[in-house]
Simulated scan of single mutants.
Amino acid sequence: MPASLASTSLKIAVALVLLGIAAVFSVTIGTRSVPWTEIRTALGGQTETIGSAAVAVRLPRTALAPLAGGALGVAGDVMQGINRNPLADPWILGINRGAALFVVTGIAFFDLSGPAAYLWVGVAGAGAAAIFVYTIGALGRDGPTPLKLTLAGTATSITASSSLIAVVLPRNDIAGNV
């Protein structure tokens, strides 16, 4: 076995062991610590005790956490690959602020409420910000270069932040919800 393959295999094995340890901590430690006996009963499908019920609630969260983390990692790699910039991320490219601006504007002016509405309006805002940044970054010679995309994203992020503050400041009723 080549040295690089052995090194990679060792790193994967260590990562999987650490993931397993984190999963055990995620299930056992929380507002209420749960002993192993209650974990076994919860894994058997029984939720008569408070500890077993806590484990039953924690198990889906623990199972979905690596999937969500992996999806975020892939999304980051795709963003960096498309922009050809290892520093590209949603903050630098203005995507997070675009999403926040759409949600806050929806709350302030369209009486938006509820997690599902926030989610979909935030996704629309992120998409609109990404399209805007790419359009601005593609203007001029040479098309969308990493530098132009980064500068357009930073300017968009700053503008969206300022706009967000301008929406929230006069509205004390929504300042606590944001």
Rank of each mutant, 00 (worst) to 15 (best):
M1N: 08
S4N: 08
L5Y: 09
L5I: 10
S9M: 14
L10A: 15
L10H: 08
K11F: 15
I12Y: 09
A15I: 12
L16R: 07
V17W: 15
G20C: 10
A22R: 12
A23C: 09
V24D: 05
V24I: 10
V24K: 01
V27W: 00
V27S: 00
T28N: 09
P35I: 00
P35H: 01
P35C: 01
E38Y: 00
I39E: 04
A42F: 00
A42Q: 00
G44V: 01
G45V: 00
E48S: 10
T49E: 03
I50G: 12
G51H: 05
T62I: 11
T62L: 06
T62H: 06
L64M: 15
A65S: 14
A65V: 04
A65P: 06
L67K: 03
G69P: 04
G73S: 01
G73F: 01
G73R: 00
G73H: 00
V74Q: 10
G76P: 13
D77R: 02
Q80K: 10
Q80G: 14
Q80A: 06
G81I: 14
G81L: 13
G81E: 09
I82A: 14
N83K: 01
N83Q: 12
R84P: 01
P86R: 07
L87S: 14
P90R: 08
P90T: 02
W91T: 08
L93V: 08
L93Y: 04
G94F: 07
I95R: 08
N96L: 09
N96T: 12
G98H: 14
A100Y: 07
L101Y: 11
F102M: 14
V104S: 07
V104C: 06
T105C: 04
G106Y: 00
A108D: 03
F109Q: 06
L112V: 10
L112N: 14
P115Y: 02
A116T: 15
A117P: 02
A117K: 02
Y118F: 14
W120K: 01
V121Q: 01
G122Q: 04
G122L: 01
G122S: 03
G122E: 01
G122A: 11
A124V: 10
A124L: 15
G125L: 13
A126D: 15
G127S: 14
A129H: 14
A129D: 10
I131K: 05
F132Y: 12
F132T: 14
F132R: 03
Y134Q: 06
Y134V: 06
T135N: 03
L139T: 06
G140C: 08
P144L: 04
L147R: 13
K148W: 02
L149K: 06
L149A: 07
L149T: 14
L151Y: 07
I158D: 03
I158K: 11
I165K: 02
A166G: 09
A166K: 07
V168G: 02
N172D: 02
D173M: 09
D173C: 05
A175M: 08
G176H: 12
V178H: 04
V178K: 12
V178N: 05
